[in-house]
Design a protein around this nucleic acid. Structure first.
Lengths: 148, 148
DNA sequence: ATTGGTGCAAAGGATTTGCAGTCTA
DNA sequence: TAGACTGCAAATCCTTTGCACCAAT
């Protein structure tokens, strides 16, 4: 089952079910972390997750956040999005989609596959297998006109 | 002028001309670094450049390599390619193109725009301007079959 | 009991920065 | 000579690791 079939936001029970489906033992801190990611489809850096999960009271350590996000990504529960050299984002939207990245603000937005198509991909060398095709549209803020 | 109109490999004089065109003062080490990048179209990490430029004899420090690559990218002479969370690649191919990245080997290969097309991009918000559209095809080595 | 998970602090690697010395125009 | 550019080392930032403790089966 693809978790996108479920309803957002995921409740605590749904999150536990989700982890289990992906072969991840649902421990306290893993559920806490997943609970944040799956509140709604979003992109977060490890640091944002750390801050957010410990907002009410410190429950999860930095190392655990990194380990957990790494685990989630490895299991296919979330996706790493690499658009900024300074940090990795983790994406809880499991539907196929692409990204729009604002270089100035660091804001990352989904582009649904919708009618966006990539055509004419070259043949792959015979010794490799495709892992994914990603389209990244980079934008920056429109500069304020100095001379209108 | 787009530097891709020139001939590869760029000779030392052509490199100096190139830097000048891009408003970059052609100092000794900048020319050395650019000389490597523009020997042929390629992707290199800062570390690779550092190693390569100092192959014959140490001429450039690590800090200068980073600063210089940053400057080149800022001036539009080369492009940053962000496909690996562990390092940034710098791309001396100025023609529009996309990338094929082998996660296992870390090898990065160009995909000429040729017949590859991206269609159906959504409209951009009014307050931003497009900086570039990039397609990244990620592949990994075909696993050795344990049970053929 | 055994296995797996977590926290903490220390280690690591990539990149940046501060500052004094050096080069260029 | 003034302004730019470099080198070096120290400083940062993000991320991973080592290891002892805790939790669940």
């Amino acid at each position: 089952m693809e978790h996108s079939e479920r309803q957002w936001p995921f409740g605590r029970q749904a999150v536990i079910g989700l982890l289990t489906e992906y072969g991840i033992q649902p421990t306290q801190q893993r559920v806490d972390i997943a609970g944040i990611l799956f509140d709604h489809p979003q992109h977060m850096s490890a640091d944002q997750v750390l801050t957010c999960v410990n907002k009410s009271r410190p429950t999860v350590s930095k190392a655990t956040v990194y380990n957990t996000l790494g685990l989630f990504a490895e299991k296919g529960l979330i996706r790493q999005v690499i658009v900024d050299p300074n940090r990795v984002f983790y994406d809880s939207n499991n539907l196929e989609h692409h990204h729009l990245y604002n270089i100035d603000t660091g804001k990352l937005v989904d582009i649904p596959v919708g009618h966006l198509k990539v055509e004419g991909l070259p043949e792959l060398p015979h010794d490799v297998v495709a892992e994914g095709v990603e389209v990244i549209v980079r934008v920056r803020n429109k500069p304020t006109r100095l001379f209108p």
